[in-house]
Design a protein around this nucleic acid. Structure first.
Length: 140
DNA sequence: GCCAACGTTGGC
DNA sequence: GCCAACGTTGGC
């Protein structure tokens, strides 16, 4: 499974749902995504993929890593029938002892291609494996 | 089908 | 608090 693992970044406003909430819950349904591009990425996710969890708002930093536990399913918060929007489940893997701030990522020449930098409003996005590994090597 | 107006997101 | 980017809505 790990040989074709993909990497993603999920954005959340910690005042509505934080990394700590996820730690307490143990596993959660990542629902409420209402953007077509983000939906497309959710549909590509599969169990075993890793997700960087990013806190937007005041913090603006990557704070933890979670693992996808289910592929996309109908989003129960979607009122239209049949459901169009989708959700996945994730569980926390580990917290970053030193969160990686957006500022560092934006200042890093090797991160300029990231959608986090180029498309600041996107809430679900892929991260290539090389950059994922690079971030951990450089900033942890 | 175009586009102006408006709302939302999120960084600064 | 402001504003840029982006999405949605509605009039034509």
């Amino acid at each position: 499974m790990s040989n074709n693992r993909q990497y993603w970044l999920l954005k959340t406003e910690p005042e509505s749902y934080s990394w700590n909430n996820l730690l307490q819950e143990g596993e959660t349904l990542w629902d409420g995504v209402r953007n077509h591009q983000a939906r497309k990425y959710l549909l590509e996710m599969k169990p075993g993929d890793f997700c960087l969890i990013y806190h937007t708002g005041k913090e603006k930093a990557i704070v933890g890593v979670a693992e996808v536990t289910t592929s996309a399913q109908p989003d129960p918060t979607d009122s239209q029938s049949p459901n169009y929007w989708v959700a996945i489940r994730i569980k926390p893997l580990f917290s970053l002892s030193r969160p990686i701030p957006l500022k560092q990522i934006k200042n890093d020449p090797q991160c300029q291609h990231l959608l986090l930098v180029k498309q600041p409003r996107l809430s679900v996005m892929p991260i290539d494996e090389d950059t994922y590994n690079y971030l951990f090597k450089k900033y942890l």
